[in-house]
Design a protein around this nucleic acid. Sequence first.
DNA 1: TATCCATGTGTACGCTAGTACACATGGGAT
DNA 2: ATCCCATGTGTACTAGCGTACACATGGATA
Lengths: 178, 178
Amino acid sequence: MARRYDPERRQRIIDAAIRVVGEKGIAGLSHRSVAAEADVPLGSTTYHFKTLDDLMVAALRQANEGYARTVLARGALQDPESDLAAELAALGSEWFAGDRTGLEVEYELYLAALRRPALRPVAAEWAEGFADCLALRTDPVTARALVALIDGICLQVLLTGAPYDEGYAREVLARVIG
Amino acid sequence: MARRYDPERRQRIIDAAIRVVGEKGIAGLSHRSVAAEADVPLGSTTYHFKTLDDLMVAALRQANEGYARTVLARGALQDPESDLAAELAALGSEWFAGDRTGLEVEYELYLAALRRPALRPVAAEWAEGFADCLALRTDPVTARALVALIDGICLQVLLTGAPYDEGYAREVLARVIG
DNA sequence: TATCCATGTGTACGCTAGTACACATGGGAT
DNA sequence: ATCCCATGTGTACTAGCGTACACATGGATA
């Protein structure tokens, strides 16, 4: 059991890192910027997270858990009677509703795995966890394809600035489900 | 008509930027690193590209043109007799064959649009150009979905380290085509 | 109680970054 | 022939970075 004067210190640093990425992007993430945001000294961020990769791993894992909760909270996903494509398209609407900062943080950290091997296992956790959840309603191959398609749809919205079209998402997701 | 002592200077800088991104990622891209790679003085990179965003725009546009050529070179894509899903899945195999550096550079710059508005029009050019090309064989909605699915499949391979499975890609692409 | 060490803090160093600017050069327009 | 200015070059400034390290502190353990 760890001994700490400020038992929340580590968690506060992770929360601050997510806020920094939301405000300035990964490019603005540094031990110093996080320390300032968390209101702790520089040495505290370098002590708890030796490298920025370590910090990003913790931040991505936490962001993933948040989005996993939005998936699990949609209980109808598990209901065999529900329209899976419609439920997933509605989940997308939920993600894009209101402030997109959280979704941008999630994807920015997720995509950072492209160049940061340390993040890959955590990125894989998200993709596999989501797919496992969907596989309960379909089969592993279809589930994996659904995750890929959802990623692609979300990215096109985020990258090109196009609006999220729930009807379109439902239509093409339904085709993959077959 | 521009007057330049080294008429290729600007182009050499763009080529160097793409090599730098391939070797060190966007995080390693700076006016100085590109100047060193292109073997030109620092002032030359800052003169031709006032900001790094400008340089990334030029690099992404050039990378896009390269991949657009790989699409157009696959003439069977336009042949109504060919199996569109199979052709697209084979195109993916071509992209992942051998050295993946080029594909990583393409996606890293493409995904950078998430946080860099200057890149969004160029990212949109790629997505729309590819979709327009596919729309000749299907319809605009299906074409857009195919681009999204291909992006999603490629990203899952690049992000999680999973192998590219052409048979799987063909199967799920075919479902979207319907 | 006495000791240890995980945790917390402050400071300094060397490096690299974007930026700015003065100056050099030579092709094109007049 | 002359001048202009797009282009090319070298250098210096300031800011922020990761890193390292010495030292402080006080719960946990024996």
